[in-house]
Structures are given as C-alpha cells and as structure tokens.
Design a protein around this nucleic acid. Sequence first.
DNA 1: GTGGTCTAGACCACC
DNA 2: GTGGTCTAGACCACG
Lengths: 118, 118, 118, 118
Amino acid sequence: MPFYVQLASQVRNAVAANALKRGQPMPSVRKLAASLGINRNTVVRAYQELEEDGTVNAAPGRGTYIAGKVPRFLKSERLRRLQPYARQIAVEGTQLGFTDEEIVKAVKEELERLLVRT
Amino acid sequence: MPFYVQLASQVRNAVAANALKRGQPMPSVRKLAASLGINRNTVVRAYQELEEDGTVNAAPGRGTYIAGKVPRFLKSERLRRLQPYARQIAVEGTQLGFTDEEIVKAVKEELERLLVRT
Amino acid sequence: MPFYVQLASQVRNAVAANALKRGQPMPSVRKLAASLGINRNTVVRAYQELEEDGTVNAAPGRGTYIAGKVPRFLKSERLRRLQPYARQIAVEGTQLGFTDEEIVKAVKEELERLLVRT
Amino acid sequence: MPFYVQLASQVRNAVAANALKRGQPMPSVRKLAASLGINRNTVVRAYQELEEDGTVNAAPGRGTYIAGKVPRFLKSERLRRLQPYARQIAVEGTQLGFTDEEIVKAVKEELERLLVRT
DNA sequence: GTGGTCTAGACCACC
DNA sequence: GTGGTCTAGACCACG
C-alpha cells in the first residue's frame, strides 16, 4: 500500500475511533513529514485526500484541522470499513486450504502480537 | 489489481471450488486472450503464475492443464502467506477502535457468508 | 536461458558472494536496461523475480535495494528447489554408466572448485 | 527439457556406457513412439539429432542402426558429459545456502531413490 | 525520477 | 497448433 493512503487511512481511523477530536489541529506538513521520516509531498497527498474526504479542513497559512461536522463514525460506518478486510482474509484463507478455525486462530494470534508490541 | 493477478486468482478459486477439475485442459493462451479481449502476454503471465504455484502444468506444444496431484504448499509456507492478511485486519480493526472479539466476530461472519455462496 | 533469468541469477550470485551488500541500491530499471542494451521490461522481469524470492526490495518511486534481512526460505522449501538438480545428475550419471561413488566424487570436485574461485 | 532432446540424450548415454553396441538396430520410429506413448514426430526429431551426431546411421527402408565407428566413449569423454551436471548442482546448491555435505547428501539420496525404482 | 502494467507485434522451439 | 521470450512504446501511481 502507498504511504499516503496508509497515512490518510490511519488518520481517518483515529477520527473514527474518536482518538482525534473535532476542531483539533493536525501537525504541520513539515513536522509530520520530519517525524515520520518521509517526503513532504507524501504528507501533502495524504492531507489532500483527507480534505476531499471532509475529514479535515485546511486553510493556507492557518494549518489543518479535524473537521467539526464529521466527528466519529457510527458503529455501522466503522463496520463497513472493517468488512473488506474480513472478507479478504476469509477468501484468501479458504483458498489456501485453511479451515475456518485455523483462520480465526491466525487472526487471534496477530491481535495478541499487536498487544505485545504496544 | 493487475489483470494477470486477477485472472490467476480466479482460476485458483475455480480449482479450489472444483469447477475446474484435475487434468482438465485450460483454453490456449491465444484463445483465452481473444475471448477476454486482452493481450496474449497478459494471459501468459497469469498462466506462469499458476504454474509457479503448482496449480497448472504447461509446456510449449502440449498446452496447459490443471495440475493432477495438486501438491500444494507445506503448511508452514501456507501460513506465511496467510499471515499478512491476519496482520492487516488486526491493525486496521484495532485502529478503528474495535475490540478483539468484534474483529474475530467480523471474520467469522465473512467465513459463513462464503459457505452460503458455495 | 532467458535473459531475465540469467540476470536475476547473476544478481543472486553477486549477493551470495557479498559483492553486492545489504541495503545497497540497485541501478534503476531504465539505466540497467540502457547499459545492457536490452528492453526495460526484461529488466523489470528480472527484478520481480528477485523480489519474489526476497533477494531485493522494490517499490515505485523509491527504487530497488538489496534486501537487508535476507529472510531466506525455510529449509524444506530450499530442499524442494535443490532436489531437481540432484535428480538430474543422478539420472544422467547412472545412464552414463558411472557408479554412485564416481558421481558423488564429481560433485565434490565441483564444490571444491567453487571454493577455490571464491 | 524437450522430449526429443531427452530421448537422444538417453540413447547417446546408453551408447557411451556400452549398453547399446555397434551395428545394433534401433527400434523403428513407430514402435518406439508407441512404446513410449509419445508422438512419432518427436521420435523422428531425436533420430535426426542422433544421425547428425554420428551416433546412428539411418537409411530409408532399412532402419536405423548404432553407428559402427563411434563405439563407447572413453572415460574422459563420459566425464566431460557428467561435469556440467555436477557444476550445476554445486552452483545452485551453494547459492541456496546449503553446505557441501548437504548437497552431497541430496545427491546420494537421489541415487538411492533410483535404485529403488529399478 | 522510480517500479509496474498493458498492448502490439515479432520470433522461437516444441508437438 | 502450443507456451515462452523479447522489443517497442504507451500509461499509471508513487516520491
């Protein structure tokens, strides 16, 4: 996955999960790029996606802010975003000849691995 | 997704679902390309992918056939392929603020949905 | 042997011999193609082979680099790749009327010859 | 490897090992093709290679015979034919990260497997 | 600038 | 007829 899509996606998800709140300022393009060690253009692309999206409001000179009118998503919306990933592992796992239990187990293991890292 | 990956994937699915049976000949590269309205080379790429993973046997002059034995990968190799998908849903789901149980539930639902289709 | 296989093989050898070091950038597809006097696509194919087997990391916009970790295959997978060569020399050698000892000796001699070169 | 090359190679090796002797008649194209279950043209190609080669003399209507003047090869000649295979497994095996012992072991195992089949 | 995909058309060896 | 390789040139998304 391209960096800028990942970035935008993470911001959207953080908003959806209410970790980033309405009206809150986003870090400047330069700072975020520096702290992530990536190219400024890549951050710009991500912010553009988020603005087209309505997730964020940007104004030249003032900075970028989490949009007021699109607070966290409803649970149904969040589920709509989760579902493609669930479908993908279901399809690929089945195709690879795994049983449902094995697939579920693999997911559980990754979830635990995430906990450990955190 | 590139055409040749989609094509290969569809064939793999058809084999897994037993719609294409062992030893059965595949349409020739030229014919399939014509009937799909795409370039010969694209079909060649797809067939090569399928041969590399053992889904199919191909040889110049003989044609392409669904593999008889379906040797399949070792379990460890298959797990290596499954893991990225497990990781992705774990990461995205967590970022969306879901609990582990909710994520696992979403996967199980998709697995059941697959069964129904079959 | 096809160009793209030869090319990939040479790179693998260079990495194995440590002439190309971890993390080191490969020449861009366009430049290498130009300097070899062959088509871009042929180089792309070679690089893709190398990426599939983990010798190299590539991404659009970033370039291609010798892989850092060299994750390598599982031993079972590597054995699966070695076996055809073992079978070939066994068959041909036997057909030529050599005893098992003579065949093994020939292999040992070639292995030593490799060492000397290095 | 193409069928007709394999076939020609086997005959050459059999002659080299003195299993087929000077002046001895080869089976007819039709019979050999039938007994191998392959296309007659493929056998024809193999016989043509052998004749260009001098391994065999063919005359329309009379059949095909092992040439008189090229009896079995000297040991040095047989070794010259074996060596490429030894070199190949040495190179590929080393490249795959195997130790010399592991490579030799793989060859020995294949040799035993041949015995069992016979 | 980077790698990746696709098309068009040529040529090859094989059966 | 078959699959496979290579070239030429176009287009795309990414950094």
